[in-house]
Simulated assay, not measured.
Amino acid sequence: MKPLGLILAGGQARRMGGGDKGRLALGDGTLMSQVVERLRPQVGDMALNANGDPARFDDVGLPVLADSIDGFAGPLAGVLAGLDWAASQGATSIVSAAVDTPFFPADLVARLQDAAMDMDHPLALAATPDPERGLSRHPTFGLWPVALRDDLRAALTDGLRKVVQWTDRHGAALAVFHATPFDPFFNVNTPEDLARATRLLEEMA
């Protein structure tokens, strides 16, 4: 059974002037529509993690899940919201993707599942080679087991915020992707990044 899909769209987008970054125009659509289109074939049902008035996403056609942890607790709070939703659907896992990363691999889910194949509770993050650090992990792109949602809830309640601190506790596997011809986890943080994403999309057409 395919995992459920979760698009993390709860960031504050300060470097883009605030607002919903996923609504920024890219190609014939938006950042969000590009991410939805890329993730949909790889997963079962999908949901969107975002806070505030969910009605602003009515046109997207996805359930909108708000963080259950007070304050801006970062992507782990979004993952927890996704895991609680998945549990209500009878699913055993979710795969998360960031709304500002439109070119992530088309085989993301399969590779994450392969990396975590021998784990009791499959947990894996995407990574790319880094010439200085060896491997650079991409903590908003992961396979998350519903079985660990209460452990994650407790960690967040205790104040943990960094994704890799929690995933390291559970020995998360890594699915390594190579950056050819560019880093597939390139994300849009600034207007310059958005211009680059537009150029890349035109080159791929």
Rank of each mutant, 00 (worst) to 15 (best):
M1W: 02
F185A: 02
W144H: 04
A126L: 04
A172V: 04
H170K: 00
E203G: 13
R199I: 07
A172P: 05
L125T: 08
A195L: 15
A127T: 09
L62N: 10
A50R: 15
G74M: 13
P191V: 12
D28Y: 09
A13Y: 10
T30S: 12
Q34V: 00
A13G: 00
L135T: 04
P145M: 00
T167K: 05
I7Y: 06
G52W: 11
R161Y: 02
R111F: 11
R169M: 08
L4D: 13
V79I: 15
A86T: 07
A195G: 12
A195E: 15
A97Q: 08
F185P: 07
R199P: 03
A116N: 13
G22K: 03
T157F: 04
L26I: 02
L152G: 01
A73P: 04
A87H: 08
M16D: 02
H121I: 01
L62P: 14
R153E: 04
R14T: 04
D59Q: 14
F141K: 05
V99D: 13
W166H: 03
A116Y: 12
T157N: 07
L80Q: 07
G22L: 06
L108Q: 02
T167V: 04
M46H: 12
D183N: 15
P75R: 06
A13Q: 12
V36C: 11
D151H: 13
D151T: 09
G82Q: 06
N187R: 10
G10T: 00
A124F: 09
A97D: 01
G71K: 05
D118A: 15
Q89K: 15
D67L: 10
G134S: 05
A110I: 10
W144D: 00
T167A: 07
S68A: 13
P63M: 12
M32A: 14
P105E: 01
P139Y: 03
A195Y: 14
F186S: 08
F186K: 03
F182T: 15
A173Y: 10
P122K: 01
P3Y: 06
D70Y: 08
P181H: 10
F186E: 09
G134H: 05
A173G: 05
T92A: 14
A173R: 09
A55S: 15
T101C: 09
P129C: 06
H138Q: 10
V36A: 01
